[in-house]
Design a protein around this nucleic acid. Structure first.
Length: 382
DNA sequence: GATCCACGGGAATACACGGATG
DNA sequence: CATCCGTGTATTCCCGTGGATC
């Protein structure tokens, strides 16, 4: 957010607009363009990517760090910045050479692994990021995409650094798959897997992103809260309280702060009170899945989750499915399957339902493993 | 006509429990 | 007593169909 925007925002704000000016800065899935206090790691990454500044492709490098340490934020910001610089460079070349080819320029692409689980999807996102024209989503086979990709990275020296975020060993999207998918263009692409730990047999370099210090976390919270809320609405003590609770996890801390603001706003308070902080913290499950993962779910799954949150404590999966199906155009059996799938992905968790002596296998019920207040509020705002 | 994918249905498998069996 | 079996559910897995797009 630049200065003009900030001023405009204040200017058009009505006197009784309420506590919250803009939810986005407190959204744990939103990354600021300029990460706070990450100088050393950024330098390490820039070192790794250094060949780019000499028109060469860097080596593969894994970016690893604990949950909520800002890996994604870092990579997003860095890639945006690099593309900006290198892109400007490319423009300059384009205008000075008649051919107008992107000779030598290296592109930085970040692929959201959640949205790119199949080879087709992966190649599609990659291609889409690299070429100007739109890439067909249907009616064209994976083979065709592969050929197209090979062409793009063929004759002229087009090259790219591709970050895939997140890559976990446990996930079905393994580095082996990525390598296979990238095989046709292996010479023109550097792979940057982002995850908690380096992939199984990772031979390349690894850059570790350390957990945020308590101090840094307080900084982040106050900075973001200042952008999101009326001035003075969020106290320093409250930021400290949330930071202590979150233990270095920026994602969970922001989710809690968001929840606190939500609670205060719903109560028509003119500032966040301690009770709101409690409510905010309470609404973040432990463990809590990355909110970005929830956002990147297909629309219909998100609708199911939204409907699920509105239900009154359904005591079994089946009951929950029935309840959701009533407010949806999906069949009960489909909803039920979705619920199981979401539980399998860790977005919901199945817990044993109270056994009331029924026959057969004992049922389970599902509980949210994502920050419900954030999800609900953003659903309302949308 | 070809392609990818979401739906939806349903088959296959896993599990819990009580009762029968060796 | 340990094991197996039958029954009723829960859960997982698979695949045909059809929509949307090229």
């Amino acid at each position: 957010m630049d200065l003009t925007e900030r001023i405009a925002r204040r200017w058009k704000r009505s006197p009784e607009a309420g506590l919250v000016v803009d939810w986005a800065p407190l959204n744990p899935a939103v990354h600021l363009t300029d990460p706070v206090g990450r100088g050393p790691v950024l330098e390490r990454l820039l070192d790794a990517f250094d060949p780019v500044f000499r028109q060469r492709l860097p080596d593969d490098v894994a970016v690893v760090g604990p949950k909520g340490s800002g890996k994604s934020a870092l990579v997003s910001a860095l890639f945006a910045g690099l593309n900006d610089q290198v892109g400007r460079d490319r423009e300059r070349i384009r205008t000075t050479t008649r051919a107008g080819s992107a000779e030598g320029a290296v592109r930085f692409v970040r692929v959201d692994a959640h949205r790119a689980r199949s080879e087709f999807r992966f190649l599609h996102t990659l291609l889409d990021a690299v070429v100007d024209e739109s890439v067909p989503e249907r009616g064209v086979g994976t083979d065709a995409l592969r050929d197209r990709l090979t062409d793009e990275f063929g004759a002229p020296t087009r090259r790219a650094v591709v970050a895939v975020d997140p890559v976990t060993d446990l996930e079905d999207l393994a580095v082996a798959d990525l390598r296979e998918w990238l095989a046709p263009v292996a010479d023109a692409v550097a792979l940057v897997p982002v995850g908690r730990e380096a992939p199984g047999e990772w031979a390349g370099e690894t850059v570790r992103v350390p957990e945020y210090s308590r101090h840094a976390l307080v900084d982040i919270l106050t900075t973001r809260a200042a952008q999101a809320l009326e001035s003075g609405a969020f106290g320093h003590d409250q930021a400290r309280r949330i930071a202590d609770w979150a233990g270095g996890d920026a994602h969970d801390a922001l989710a809690a702060a968001f929840g606190a603001a939500d609670a205060a706003d719903r109560a028509d308070a003119d500032r966040v009170r301690d009770a709101d902080v409690d409510a905010g913290i309470d609404a973040v499950p432990d463990p809590c899945v990355n909110f970005g993962r929830v956002l990147s779910l297909p629309e219909n799954r998100r609708r199911v989750l939204a409907a699920l949150l509105e239900l009154d404590e359904p005591s079994t999966v089946r009951e929950a499915a029935a309840g959701v199906a009533r407010t949806s155009d999906l069949t009960e059996s489909t909803v039920e399957r979705f619920l199981y799938e979401l539980a399998e992905e860790g977005i919901l968790e199945r817990v044993e339902a109270s056994t009331d002596g029924g026959e057969g296998r004992t049922p389970s019920r599902v509980v949210a493993r994502f920050p419900a207040r954030v999800f609900r509020r953003l659903g309302e705002e949308a």
